[in-house]
Design a binder for these strands. Sequence first.
DNA 1: ATTTCATGTAACTTTTATAGTTACATGAAA
DNA 2: TTTCATGTAACTATAAAAGTTACATGAAAT
Lengths: 147, 147
Amino acid sequence: MKSNSQLSLALHLLLHMADMEEPVTSGLLASAMNTNPVVIRRLMGGLREHGIVQSRKGHHGGWTLSRPLAELTLRDVYLALGGGPLLSLTHRTQNPDCLIEQAVNETLDGAFRDAEALLLARFADLSLAALQSRIHAAIHSPAHLCA
Amino acid sequence: MKSNSQLSLALHLLLHMADMEEPVTSGLLASAMNTNPVVIRRLMGGLREHGIVQSRKGHHGGWTLSRPLAELTLRDVYLALGGGPLLSLTHRTQNPDCLIEQAVNETLDGAFRDAEALLLARFADLSLAALQSRIHAAIHSPAHLCA
DNA sequence: ATTTCATGTAACTTTTATAGTTACATGAAA
DNA sequence: TTTCATGTAACTATAAAAGTTACATGAAAT
């Protein structure tokens, strides 16, 4: 399984942006995340389409949050990123003729659905504000943050 | 994410083997699964090391189940295959210096652990015999099985 | 107006995990 | 001693995610 770290990256970005007064450029975010500005733009583009962030071009342009972190859950972010697969296990054949394989698929699907539903419910219960206060509880200075 | 279908394949194989009296060769299983014998051997090798199947070389050799399906759960099979990652979401950085990213990782981990635990518990509750009876309930002839 | 800065986006390359293939060694039965 | 089947290493193919390059678009500053 080649894994997906977009949600992790998006949460990290959004929490950093919450500390900023001015719009932040993709370049600045990219160097803090040790990646390329285009990676940031692609990811943020998805969030913008779902009303989570806004962008502005030109001088003093960049990205800003479009709502308070209290009104944003991990589920919102996950869905804004496209809501891709949560589990790394898949069926070997999608619509098999073999009845045995059909039963295997159905049985696995049942378990998968439950696990995915639990994870999504947990995501829905976690606001970015809750995450932020968890951070502020641990540290009261701006030290130990990304460059 | 490039996904992992080994569990799906293993279950399909084991359930077909349950219908066989004689040892089945990797070649036969491979053509039923539309894949290569070596793929079958690699997967079955893992199961053999965990006492789920046995192998015999030479004439009339092949693979046989080493215990009844009632004593085999999906969890057993999953673990015998190496117990790889269940979720496709990962952290962007494994041990980040940034406190924000640490908090993101910890928060995600909490949700991930719960979802994985649920899935494993569901796997532990499902025996291959239960899966088999689910199949026999649907069909009483050997039709609609793999070639 | 025109220069500068920043996003928007398409096309391409790199990386990495899974799956599939080839080739050959090992060992058991006929 | 031949045949059949597993055991395994090394290699190739496929696909998804991430990163990169190049350039178009548009807004602000001069």
